[in-house]
Design a binder for these strands. Structure first.
Lengths: 211, 211
DNA sequence: CCAGAGTTGGAATGACAATTCCAACTCTTG
DNA sequence: CAAGAGTTGGAATTGTCATTCCAACTCTGG
């Protein structure tokens, strides 16, 4: 019935090489500013200055601020998942889980626990104000949760994890502990809460390990 | 050396009865609006309309928007802790912990998982933009965590919980699970994540119960 | 009751944000 | 190398926001 919508396909062809570069620069600058000052605390003029572009460029590539925010959401998701690889794709042992969570804790300490989680912050700010952002962020969390669950599934398939374990629920619980721990750590300016939250859930997962 | 600062004491005396009523009405209206639309998404004119007051009244009682936000932070903390009582003050059994978390989950379902946690949302939005709000929110989380820890301490003192359990860390982990679970549930519009996150941590606490 | 502190209304101010517009420019493609 | 599509600069527009100001009003303590 409908012709293929293909938001990405033909659109992408209409971008010339410098155009794509400008577009990327805008997203990166916006992501950085929105991470530090929130979406509401980041104005288009701010982004113009940071990216070195004019207003018309932003509106040319993203339509309006909402469109830019959506692009930032997906950029941050891609970036966050990419930077966690390859650890993220091999979470199939208790040690791997601990090592993965530790790198996040160390990174948090390295920046003085400022800023919290890029995705969590966007989620909290946009969940009620931008329905399409909420949808995208829901997908972001799904993309994040999937490799955690996959690792647990592999452990269970190999017989290293009890059949009794609800690995999907455990993966969700670990992601929640990460988010809640990051928020508490951000507010308290100490990674302790994050470490304790994550440690508790991994200890719990470990209780399902068969000897 | 210093005369008693007493920010509350003498200040409070300078408020006449209708003044106090107006002040409270402003805070309640602001809290409601900020919960649904965020701090950045709530303007002074919005609050004026909702509370039925004029601009001068808001500035008279709170100085500026920042002052009002601070008042809202503390109001929401008081309100949230009060509404969780008396359950919150008797978290000294696994059943009590489960029952307490369940009521929050049910309340979440009742409002379609809209809005997340009043305190967590404020924390995420204000942590990097308002230092004094961050400090107050840190204290808010401490106030919330304390009764959880106290309950666990009582269990441990009574010998119901193993000496090996780090009850302070477990209390932090449970609060983090609540926060992270609420955020995921808000974004996904389903209380499942909250229930799973909280359940995992309480299960873990239960593993320290001595038979 | 009556002074003075506390309270209120509402307009005015100044800043700044989001967005639009269009002319001028540059890249790609045939 | 020439369209024509894509890109860019910068000013103009329109709306809204936080905040101020002050005159008029009302409550409370003595």
């Amino acid at each position: 019935m409908n012709p293929p919508v293909d938001v990405e396909g033909p659109e992408r062809r209409r971008l010339t090489k410098p155009g794509r570069k400008t577009r990327d620069r805008i997203i990166e600058a916006a992501a950085e500013l929105m991470f530090h000052h929130g979406v509401g605390g980041t104005s288009i003029p701010d982004i113009q200055a940071a990216a070195g572009v004019s207003a018309s460029q932003i509106y040319h590539y993203f339509g309006d601020k909402r469109g830019l925010v959506l692009a930032v959401v997906n950029f941050q998701t891609d970036t966050k998942l990419d930077q966690q690889r390859p650890l993220l794709d091999h979470l199939d042992s208790i040690d791997a889980l601990r090592a993965w969570c530790d790198t996040a804790a160390d990174r948090q300490d390295a920046m003085g626990c400022v800023g919290g989680c890029e995705i969590g912050s966007l989620a909290s700010e946009l969940a009620e104000s931008d329905p399409s952002a909420r949808t995208d962020l829901s997908a972001s969390f799904d993309r994040w949760e999937l490799p955690i669950r996959s690792g647990l599934v592999r452990m269970q398939t190999r017989g290293e994890l009890s059949e009794r374990a609800d690995v999907a629920a455990l993966a969700t619980a670990l992601l929640a502990a990460i988010q809640g721990g990051m928020l508490l750590s951000q507010v308290r300016r100490s990674s302790t809460a994050y470490r304790q939250a994550v440690s508790a859930v991994i200890d719990h997962i470990e209780s399902y390990v068969v000897p």
